[in-house]
Amino acid sequence: MTNKILDVLAGIRPEFDFSASSDYIADGMLDSIDVITLVSDLDKEFSICIEGVDILPENFRNLDAIRELLRKYGADK
């Protein structure tokens, strides 16, 4: 799952190394427009539909947060 997430992130912002940051928002690697793109790309990659109530910066802040969100939607099954 981790590699897939990193691939999705690299597809949105190829100039950054997402494995080296613990806070993509504070580090300026993802802005709110990128987060919406990320939600859409994660939906497609993992065949899920992340609800609007979960589209919060804290759920996309780093790899751990994204993994936890995806587990909630059963993406690790």
Partner: peptide, 17 residues
Amino acid sequence: VGRVARSGTGYATNLFA
């Protein structure tokens, strides 16, 4: 914002502030 359900890929927003 949370009340608005998503439906597949159609979800749209420009509330980025």
